[in-house]
Amino acid sequence: MNANPLGLLGVDRLDTPIGTALLVIDGDGLLCALDWEDHETRMRQLLRLQHGTVALRDSRAPREIRAGLSAYFEGDLASLATIKWRLAGTAFQRKIWTALTRIPPGTTMSYGALAAQLDMPKAMRAVGHANGANPISVVIPCHRLIGADGSLVKYGSGLERKRWLLAHEGVTLAR
């Protein structure tokens, strides 16, 4: 957990083709969580685990964040790279989350392949746990991790959203 709790955070809502996204912004205007309105409890739990006690207040997200996400959902897949974010978590989690951002849109990787790429070939379960604790859905593309057999597995916001995100990025699933 981060030793410097964020305290008061802003929360904005953005309508997307797969539901209303909750955008949580810190005092510097950086994205520190993105989840879906129907998963707000999970999002708050992840924030508490990573930042300690935080309070959310309604606040407009910076234009750059809203524009980057809107552009992504309109088909500009590269626009996610323009969004500035800040994460807490453990050093291991941050390593996994940073590695996720290097999986290009339109591609997938298995948990084991990501672990091997990071020179931790036996850490696929730990990679899975870190992936599941990712507080910034879509922008840190945890949806791009799939099972070793090419199947959709585990997505905190539901497999239908994961399927939609991958199809939106042009991924054809084997299963």
Results as ranks from 00 to 15, higher is better:
Asp119Pro: 03
Gly10Gln: 04
Ala167Ile: 13
Met43Pro: 08
Asp26Phe: 05
Arg102Ser: 10
Gly19Asn: 07
Leu8Arg: 05
Gln93Ile: 07
Ala21Tyr: 06
Asp12Gly: 08
Glu64Val: 08
Val138Arg: 01
Val24Asn: 02
Ile96Cys: 01
Pro121Trp: 11
Asp38Phe: 11
Ala61Arg: 02
Gly156Gln: 08
Ile83Tyr: 06
Arg42Glu: 11
Pro104Ala: 12
Val138Trp: 03
Leu69Asn: 08
Ala123Val: 06
Arg125His: 11
Leu80Lys: 14
Phe73Ile: 11
Ala88Gln: 02
Gly10Glu: 03
Val11Arg: 11
Arg42Ser: 12
Leu49Pro: 03
Ala78Ser: 13
Arg44Trp: 13
Thr53Phe: 10
Asp28Gln: 12
Asp12Arg: 01
Lys95Cys: 07
Leu6Gly: 06
Gly10Phe: 05
Lys95Glu: 14
Ile96Trp: 01
Lys154Pro: 00
Asp149Thr: 00
Asp38Thr: 03
Leu145Tyr: 00
Pro135Glu: 15
Pro104Asn: 09
Arg42Asn: 04
Glu74Asp: 15
Asp26Ile: 01
Ala78Val: 07
Ala174Gln: 14
Arg161Phe: 04
Glu40Arg: 12
Ala113Glu: 04
Met43Glu: 10
Ile146Asn: 01
Ala21Thr: 05
Arg63Met: 15
Leu77Cys: 15
Asp28Ser: 13
Leu87Gly: 09
Thr172Ser: 15
Thr108Val: 10
Val11Glu: 12
Leu114Cys: 13
Ala126Gly: 12
Arg13Tyr: 12
Pro105Cys: 11
Ala71Met: 02
Pro121Ser: 14
Asn4Ile: 13
Gly52Ile: 07
Asp76Tyr: 05
